[in-house]
Amino acid sequence: MADYGLLLDEEVRAYIARGAEFYPPHAVDLDITQQRAVYDDMCAAFHAGRPEGVEVWDEPYGGVPCRRYEAGEADVTLIYYHGGGFVVGGLHSHDDVCAELCARVGVRVISVNYGLAPETIFPGCYNDAKAAFDAIALAYPQTLLTAGDSAGGNLAAAVTHHARGQIAGQILIYPGLGGDPTKGSYIEHANAPELTTKDMLFYQTIRTGGTPPPTDDPRYAPLHDTDFSSLPPTVIVTAECDPLASDGESYRNAILAAGGQAVWFNEAGLVHGCLRARGMSARGAAFFDRVAGAIDALAKGNWPY
Rank of each mutant, 00 (worst) to 15 (best):
D180S: 07
D128L: 05
P193G: 02
P214G: 02
V56D: 07
A151T: 05
E119W: 13
A139T: 14
A17L: 10
V56Q: 08
L144T: 03
Y81A: 03
L7Q: 11
R104Y: 08
N253K: 14
A44Q: 14
D96R: 09
G248H: 00
V263C: 08
C98A: 14
M200G: 09
G248Q: 00
I32P: 08
A151N: 04
Q166T: 12
G176S: 09
Y174A: 03
T234E: 03
G279S: 11
L223W: 06
K300M: 04
D31K: 13
A294W: 01
G209Y: 04
S246T: 14
E249N: 02
R108Y: 09
L101G: 06
A139V: 09
G178L: 01
I255Y: 02
Q166I: 06
P65I: 06
P118H: 13
Y251C: 01
Y174K: 02
T226H: 08
I32N: 09
E52M: 11
P51A: 10
P193L: 02
G85F: 10
L30P: 10
T77L: 09
A117Y: 05
T196H: 06
D40S: 14
T197S: 05
Y39S: 13
P51Y: 05
R108F: 09
V87K: 03
A45I: 11
I187C: 05
H162R: 13
R290E: 12
